[in-house]
Simulated assay, not measured.
Amino acid sequence: MKPDDCYKMNGPTVKFYIRFNTSRLLVLTIFLYGISSTLVAEEIRFPDELTKFRPYTSNPIFEAQGPGHWDVKIRERGWILKEEDFYHLWFTGYDGTRQGIKKLGYAWSCDGIHWTRSPCNPIYQQHWVEDMMVIKQGNTYHMFAEGKNDIAQHLTSTDAVNWTRVGALDVRMSDGKPIAAGPYGTPVVWYEKGTWYLFYERRDAGIWLATSPDMKVWTNINNDQPVMLPGPESYDQKMIAMNQLIKYQGTYYMVFHGTAAVQKPSLWTTNIAASQNMIDWVKYSGNPLTRPEVNQSSGLLIPDGNRFRFYTMHNQVDLNLPVVP
C-alpha cells in the first residue's frame, strides 16, 4: 500500500487499518521487551567460582581468646583485606556481655589461614567499633563501622593499626534532609569513577544506597527506597544486612546475610546477589550459601590468585575453599 492510498479508503477501512497496525506494533513491542528481558537475565550470572565452596577441614581459623583476655568473644562482621601476599584481619572483641564496649583488634597472615595477633591489641578502644569494613584509597585505609547504638562511623589510618576517628556518617534523604533518627549500620562502601557509594541497613529491614563525592555528606538515591528488601524466599524473609560488594567480570556481586521468620532464635545464613547498576539486584536461586543450622554470617569473598576464598566472620572466622580448580 502506497501512502496516498490511505486517503482513498473509507472510514471503516481506515479504522480497521489503524487498529490492525496498532496490534502489530503492540505485538512487536512485547516481542522486543521479551528479548530485552532475556538479554538482561542472561547478563546476570552466578559463576561457580563465587558460589561453590567446601569447608576447610581445620575450622575455625581464628576465634576469641576467651576468659581472662580483652576479647572474651568476637562478634559481627570482621574484615579481611589482601594486599599482594599479605592478609590483614580486623575484628571486634569484647567482654562477652551485651553492654560491653566493642573494641577493635588486628591480626595479620601470610597465607590467610594462620594468623598473628597484634601485640598492641586492642588497637582502638576510644570509641565503640564493630561490624567494620575497610577500603584502601591511595595510601589511606578507610574504615566504616558501626559505633554505639548502630550508628555508622568513619575512621582512617595510614598503617592499618593506628586509627583516627573522623566521626559519624552524615546521611541525608534525597531532598537534603537528614534521615530519620535511629540506627543505620552495617556500612559497605565502594569507590568508583570519582563517586563514593554507601550501602547501609536500618534495623535489618532493608538495604539503602547513598552516594557522596567526598565522604562528608551521603545522599540517598533510588527515591529514598531500599535497593534490597527481605524475601520473598524464606531464608531471608525476616532480616537482611549487606556484608560486601565486589565487581567481577563486569557485574556487581553483593554478599549479604539473612534470617528466616520462622527461626527462633534467629539463625543467619550467608547469601549472594548480583546487579549491573548497584540498584536492581537479583538474588541467587541457589541461596543460601551456608546452612541455617551452622549460623554463619558476615561472609566475605577474598581473591586468592585466580580464585576466591569464602570466609564467614561472626563469632569465629571460618574458611571455605573453592570447589572450582
Rank of each mutant, 00 (worst) to 15 (best):
I207E: 05
K102S: 09
A181L: 11
R309N: 14
D111E: 03
N220Y: 00
G105R: 03
Q125D: 14
D5P: 01
R54G: 02
M143I: 08
I35E: 02
A260L: 03
S285N: 09
D131C: 13
E201T: 14
Y17G: 10
G176T: 12
T259C: 14
Q237H: 13
N287D: 09
A41T: 00
K283N: 04
F20A: 15
R45K: 14
A160Y: 08
Q316K: 13
A261W: 14
F310Y: 15
W190C: 00
G78L: 06
H154F: 02
K103G: 02
F86V: 15
G182W: 12
A261M: 05
T259D: 01
Y252H: 08
N223E: 10
L104K: 03
M254C: 10
P265S: 04
I279W: 04
T57L: 13
E293W: 08
Q249M: 04
L89C: 12
V161G: 11
W79L: 01
D170I: 00
K103W: 01
A168F: 11
S285A: 14
L169Q: 03
I179S: 04
K103A: 04
A41L: 03
S174W: 01
Y253V: 10
D71L: 02
G305P: 14
P232H: 09
T57I: 14
M132D: 01
V294I: 05
P288H: 08
E42P: 00
E293A: 10
E49H: 11
W208F: 12
I240V: 15
V255H: 01
D224C: 04
G286H: 12
N59K: 05
V72T: 11
A205R: 13
L245E: 01
N21R: 11
K193W: 01
P3N: 10
F62D: 02
E63K: 15
N21Q: 10
R172A: 03
T97A: 11
L169V: 06
T211N: 03
N220V: 01
L25W: 07
L155F: 15
M1T: 11
M228K: 03
M173F: 07
W190K: 00
G299Q: 06
T29V: 12
W268N: 10
A210D: 00
T156M: 03
P60L: 02
E293L: 08
D95H: 05
M278C: 07
D224P: 07
P60R: 06
K148D: 13
Q125K: 15
T92A: 05
N295D: 13
I179P: 11
T97R: 14
D150L: 06
K8P: 05
P325A: 07
G206R: 07
V188P: 00
I151E: 06
F31K: 11
D280L: 12
V171E: 00
K238V: 04
W90A: 08
R117E: 07
I61K: 06
R117W: 05
N315I: 08
W90T: 03
E146P: 05
G231H: 10
W128V: 08
S234E: 13
V72C: 07
H142D: 09
S174G: 10
L245W: 03
T57V: 09
T92Q: 07
N287H: 07
F53R: 06
K8F: 09
D150E: 07
S266A: 12
V40F: 02
K216A: 09
N287Q: 04
N139L: 03
W208D: 01
S174Y: 05
K216Q: 15
P232R: 01
